[in-house]
């Protein structure tokens, strides 16, 4: 029995050390490697009526053109570009083309970010027709009732949000972005994400 108690004590001690190790790794070391995963604790939540800059990007779960749901939280761990647009706005439609060109350039930078274009308050058939006719491959999500637009306080189209890997809004750009400016801003976003 005494012999067994020693074994049990050894196993318990090993488990305690392993648990402590995992805790330390999860709490301090892992975030250093892959960025913070403790989302709620570090970044202030969005406050209605106040700028989203520096705050947590409001989560959304929207359908794409195939009917599959996509949530912003799925993209945590990598920076994201979220653009609000609609087919009726020429600039916003052009922004989708520019985002598409950016993704098709197949640059190292473009592979490190997720690009999402949220169509605001249009019928899926209109968006599908536009995307298909233009041959655009950008991930298009549908916000038929404008809920996501409202949570992001979108005042004009297009508006683009640059979101860091831990879900913080790092930059907001109202208006159309050229591919060159887009590359610069994503570069900044990646640097900021690396620093964290």
């Amino acid at each position: 029995m005494k012999k067994h108690s020693h074994i049990l004590a050894f196993v318990a001690l090993s488990m305690a050390i392993a648990a402590t190790g995992f805790y330390i790794a999860g709490k301090y070391i892992l975030p250093q490697i892959v960025g913070s995963t403790d989302l709620a604790a570090e970044i202030p939540q969005a406050v209605p009526g106040q700028s989203l800059l520096g705050r947590r990007a409001p989560n959304f779960a929207l359908s794409d053109l195939a009917g599959d749901r996509t949530a912003l939280s799925q993209y945590y761990g990598a920076p994201a570009i979220v653009t609000f647009w609609a087919t009726w706005s020429a600039d916003a439609a052009d922004q989708v083309k520019i985002l598409d060109d950016y993704a098709r350039n197949d640059s190292e930078q473009a592979r490190l970010v997720n690009v999402v274009a949220i169509d605001s308050q249009e019928d899926p058939s209109i968006v599908a027709s536009f995307m298909e006719r233009g041959g655009y491959g950008t991930k298009a999500l549908l916000d038929p009732f404008g809920e996501a637009s409202s949570r992001y306080d979108v005042k004009g189209l297009p508006t683009t949000y640059f979101i860091s890997r831990d879900g913080a809004v790092k930059e907001i750009y109202a208006g159309i972005l050229s591919e060159r400016v887009l590359v610069e801003k994503v570069d900044n976003l990646l640097k900021q994400s690396t620093v964290q």
Binding site: A93, K97, G135
Partner: peptide
Amino acid sequence: GYQLDNAFADSMKR
């Protein structure tokens, strides 16, 4: 039918 708009032009460019 089909609009001969920028989206059409983009698809032709591809």
